Amino acid sequence: MSKLSPTILMVPGLRDHVPEHWQTLLQAKLQADGIKTASVPPLEADKLSCTARVTALDKALATIDGPVVLVAHSAGVMITAHWARRHARKIHGALLATPADLDTPLPSGYPTHDALQTNGWLPCPRRPLPFPSIVAASRNDPLAAYDRVADMAADWGSRLVDLGEVGHLNPAAGFGPWADAEALLHDLL
């Protein structure tokens, strides 16, 4: 890839960086292949604050010269959508994997609807994104029904990709490496 190739910026969800997560593994593989990558760093405080998460994404973007492709997972997709509503930096494209439907109460063990409301996550942005994007959706994601994710993708102007039954596409669902990520990322490059 040339020096004008996009930097791939990982946007993790609320659980931040997990060593065996597909985003972490993908970043290591891309780096080994000589592709420029970066990741939004974990928050030290205000971990549930949407504004703090959007600010962290914006700060990470500010350190990157040239084009950027975002690779977001779960609440990282919502961080990306909130960021796009507030900022105007040109983004080359975004791979938005298994977005969490924060407008619908999440299962036990996740933030409550009231906590999400208080911390600025709701309502989830639904305006068209100002950059090309692919939404990768699961048919059995415990954090978002497929039809809800399909509606989000349509509202955002994103291409929807049906991943089948992959749960939340995380280690708990049996995913470390996600083989399709590179092919979908290639579609955005």
Score class of each variant (00 low, 15 high):
Met1Trp: 09
Ser2Glu: 14
Leu4Cys: 10
Ser5His: 13
Pro6Asn: 03
Pro6Asp: 06
Ile8Arg: 06
Val11Asn: 08
Val11Gln: 12
Pro12Thr: 01
Pro12Gly: 02
Leu14Thr: 04
Leu14Gly: 02
Arg15Asp: 14
Val18His: 10
Val18Asn: 13
Pro19Gly: 05
Glu20Lys: 11
Glu20Asp: 15
Trp22Lys: 12
Trp22Ser: 11
Trp22Arg: 06
Gln23Thr: 15
Leu25Glu: 10
Leu30Ile: 15
Gln31Phe: 15
Gln31Gly: 05
Ala32Asn: 14
Asp33Thr: 10
Asp33Glu: 14
Gly34Leu: 13
Ile35Leu: 07
Ile35Glu: 12
Thr37Tyr: 12
Thr37Glu: 07
Ala38Ser: 03
Pro41Cys: 02
Pro41Glu: 09
Leu43Val: 10
Glu44Ser: 03
Lys47Cys: 08
Lys47Ile: 14
Ser49Trp: 15
Ser49Cys: 14
Thr51Asp: 13
Ala52Phe: 06
Val54Asn: 01
Thr55Leu: 05
Ala56Gly: 15
Leu57Gly: 02
Asp58Met: 05
Asp58Pro: 04
Ala60Ser: 14
Ala60Ile: 13
Ala62Glu: 14
Ala62His: 04
Ala62Ser: 13
Ile64His: 09
Ile64Pro: 08
Asp65Ser: 06
Pro67Tyr: 03
Val68Asp: 12
Val69Gln: 11
Leu70Ala: 09
Leu70Glu: 07
Ala75Met: 06
Gly76Phe: 04
Met78Tyr: 11
Met78Arg: 02
Thr80Tyr: 07
Ala81Phe: 14
Ala84Asn: 14
Arg85Gly: 08
Lys90Glu: 11
Lys90Leu: 13
Leu96Thr: 02
Thr98Asn: 00
Thr98Trp: 03
Pro99Tyr: 11
Asp103Arg: 06
Thr104Leu: 04
Pro105Val: 10
Leu106Asp: 07
Pro107Val: 08
Ser108Phe: 12
Ser108Pro: 14
Gly109Cys: 08
Pro111His: 12
Thr112Met: 02
His113Asp: 07
Asp114Phe: 13
Asp114Lys: 11
Asp114Met: 07
Ala115Glu: 12
Thr118Asn: 03
Gly120Glu: 06
Gly120Gln: 09
Trp121Arg: 07
Cys124Pro: 02
Arg127Lys: 10
Pro128Met: 05
Leu129Asp: 09
Pro130Glu: 11
Phe131Asp: 09
Pro132Met: 02
Ser133Asp: 02
Ser133Gln: 05
Ser133Tyr: 03
Val135Gln: 01
Ala136Val: 02
Ala136Arg: 00
Ser138Asp: 01
Arg139Lys: 00
Arg139Ala: 03
Asp141Gln: 00
Pro142Glu: 00
Pro142Met: 01
Pro142Ala: 00
Ala144Lys: 01
Ala144Arg: 00
Ala144Ile: 04
Tyr146Asp: 08
Tyr146Thr: 02
Asp147Asn: 12
Val149Trp: 15
Met152His: 04
Met152Leu: 04
Ala153Cys: 07
Asp155Ser: 01
Trp156Ala: 04
Gly157Pro: 05
Ser158Pro: 11
Arg159Ile: 15
Arg159Lys: 08
Arg159Tyr: 13
Leu160Gln: 01
Val161Gln: 07
Leu163Asn: 01
Gly164Leu: 04
Gly164Pro: 13
Glu165His: 12
Glu165Val: 10
Val166Arg: 05
Gly167Ser: 05
His168Phe: 08
Asn170Phe: 09
Ala173Arg: 05
Ala173Cys: 06
Ala173Leu: 05
Trp178Phe: 08
Ala179Gly: 01
Ala179Pro: 08
Ala181His: 07
Ala181Thr: 11
Leu184Glu: 07
Leu184Gly: 09
Leu185Asn: 01
His186Glu: 13
Leu189His: 11
Leu189Asp: 09
